[in-house]
């Protein structure tokens, strides 16, 4: 096998998600090539070349590949694939990966495999369906295999230790179909939800957006955790959607997950049940969240959370 990994990067640094995708590529076996695209590609390619297990890096230094515009990046991938003929092309199952991979699939007449959890062989993978309530084993009969990788299911490859060669590549550039206007990305010192080691998450039990403040305080007391929310809290307008954890939001796998005032709907559990330790605070003893929690506290969150903040 020879696998191409589309790198993700932000602010001049390779993203952790890429390290997990490299691990998935290593599990397939054979050579691993990483493609870095964007105005800063040359600089980021140097970082990619150091990732353990990467044999070569392709750098496409063109601003047309910034901002994840699917038409532009797909055309680049297609031209790289035309000349290098990889057996596999892997993406992170992030919003960018989900946006780009299917378009490339359409161009190559390939049916991609979404959200792989495990590599069972060169053509066989495990993937979730029905919000993680069913796990399918799938076998691709396409000559090129495209897959997106659920990053929390793969350990990160070591960021140092490799010494891959770097080659410059170019593609058609801007397809001129989409005009990028602006990104509104919340700047924060907190870790990203998908990579955070500790997460405090709130549900409808919080009653309003202001009450989420105490979850931020609790996250600080834990030593800089991230704050998330259930879909119910997002739907109720308490917090923006980027905080949503669940099948329709982010999939997380932290060391510690504290669910506050979250009942534990199936769609939420699908997004957090891979956390190492789950704690829940809920006043309803019947809430399904208790069934997946390592430590369950049946209590009024408005008393328990401030007490926890005080005692930590």
């Amino acid at each position: 096998a020879s696998t191409l990994v589309l790198a993700e990067h932000a602010e001049g640094a390779i993203a952790d998600s890429t390290l997990s995708v490299v691990s998935a590529a290593k599990a397939i076996g054979g050579d691993v090539t990483v493609l870095v695209a964007g105005a800063d590609a040359a600089k980021i390619a140097e970082q990619a070349a150091k990732i353990d297990g990467v044999s070569s890096v392709l750098a496409a230094g063109d601003a047309a590949y910034d901002h994840g515009i699917a038409e532009n990046i797909t055309a680049l991938l297609q031209s790289v694939q035309d000349s290098k003929s990889f057996s596999h092309i892997l993406f992170a199952a992030s919003n960018d990966g989900k946006n780009i991979m299917p378009r490339l699939g359409a161009k190559l007449d390939v049916q991609p495999v979404s959200d792989i959890l495990e590599v069972l062989g060169e053509d066989t993978f495990k993937r979730p369906m029905y919000a993680g309530n069913a796990i399918a084993t799938v076998k691709s009969s396409d000559s090129v295999k495209l897959a997106s990788v659920r990053i929390t299911n793969f350990d990160k490859a070591a960021a140092e230790g490799g010494s891959a060669s770097v080659e410059e590549v170019s593609g058609p550039g801007d397809a001129g179909k989409t005009t990028w206007v602006a990104d509104e990305v919340a700047k924060s010192d907190r870790p990203e939800l998908t990579t955070a080691d500790k997460i405090v998450s709130g549900g409808r039990g919080l009653k309003n957006g202001e009450n989420f403040e105490m979850l931020y305080t609790l996250a600080d007391k834990l030593g800089g955790g991230a704050v998330g929310a259930s879909r119910a809290a997002v739907d109720a307008g308490y917090v923006p959607n980027e905080l949503q954890i669940g099948q329709t939001g982010k999939i997380v796998a932290p060391g510690l997950y504290i669910a506050v005032g979250i009942s534990g709907a199936i769609q939420h559990l699908a997004g957090m049940k891979d956390a190492k330790t789950i704690v829940c605070i809920n006043k309803d003893p019947e809430a399904p969240i208790f069934q997946v929690s390592d430590i369950g506290l049946e209590a009024d969150l408005f008393k328990a959370v401030p007490e926890m903040i005080e005692k930590l």
Partner: peptide, 28 residues
């Protein structure tokens, strides 16, 4: 025609429920 064969579909691994505690002190 499907390009991907679904060879098996299984239940996800079950996560065992842990313990219930009575106080914040116990959680900590």
């Amino acid at each position: 025609e499907p390009h991907v064969q679904y060879t098996s579909v299984e239940d996800p691994p079950v996560r065992q429920a842990g313990i219930k505690v009575e106080s914040v002190d116990e959680v900590i």
